Amino acid sequence: MFNATECIEIQVKSRHALDGRLEAAVKDLQETAMRSRTCGILITRHQPGHYTAELSDQVPFGITRELCR
């Protein structure tokens, strides 16, 4: 089972850095998601350069969804 409060915070200053950090976060979360097979991954853009990546039961397993706030 996964820790529902686990959230990976990403803060970057360049698009190049963002791509790498998001890719690493998604890879880490995919490994956790494979164990439970009940949640997908939600990437949220809070403001330019500030994102979070987390497992969410609001996203179907096997899907990564993006949300802008």
Rank of each mutant, 00 (worst) to 15 (best):
I63V: 14
H46P: 04
M1W: 01
E66I: 11
H16E: 15
D57I: 01
E66P: 02
I8G: 02
S14R: 12
Y51D: 01
L42W: 04
I8W: 00
E31N: 05
P48H: 09
Q58N: 06
M1D: 06
R37W: 04
V59I: 13
M34F: 09
R21M: 12
R15P: 01
A33F: 01
D19C: 12
T5N: 11
G62E: 03
C68A: 15
E31R: 09
H16K: 15
A53F: 02
A25H: 01
L22H: 10
V59N: 03
C39D: 08
T52C: 08
L22F: 12
D57P: 03
L67H: 15
T32E: 12
M34W: 09
N3W: 03
V26N: 02
R35Y: 12
Q47K: 14
R45D: 14
S56L: 03
S56G: 05
T44Y: 06
S14F: 05
P60K: 01
T44L: 08
F2V: 10
H16V: 13
G62I: 02
C68D: 15
T5G: 03
L18K: 10
R45C: 15
L67F: 14
L42P: 01
G49K: 07
S36W: 08
E54Q: 13
Q58R: 09
C39E: 08
A4K: 08
L42E: 13
S56C: 05
I10G: 00
E6S: 07
M34G: 04
L18F: 06
A33G: 05
R45S: 15
C7Q: 13
V26W: 01
G40M: 10
P60S: 04
G49I: 08
G40D: 09
E54K: 11
A25G: 06
P48K: 10
D57C: 02
D19I: 14
E31K: 11
A24L: 14
M1K: 04
T38P: 00
D19A: 14
Q11C: 11
D19S: 13
V59A: 03
F2E: 06
D19V: 15
P48W: 05
Q30A: 01
K27R: 13
L29T: 01
A25W: 00
E23Y: 12
Q47W: 05
T64L: 03
L42C: 09
P60D: 07
D19G: 09
G49A: 12
G62Q: 02
M34P: 00
P60Y: 00
H46M: 11
V59T: 04
R37G: 09
D28A: 14
A24C: 09
T38F: 06
D28N: 13
A33Y: 00
T32R: 10
S56K: 02
Q30D: 06
E54R: 13
C7P: 00
Q47S: 14
N3F: 07
Q11V: 14
R65W: 06
E31C: 02
E6A: 09
T64A: 10
T52D: 11
A33N: 03
E9T: 13
L22C: 12
L18T: 03
L42V: 08
G62K: 02
E9R: 12
D28S: 14
L55E: 01
E6H: 11
Q11E: 15
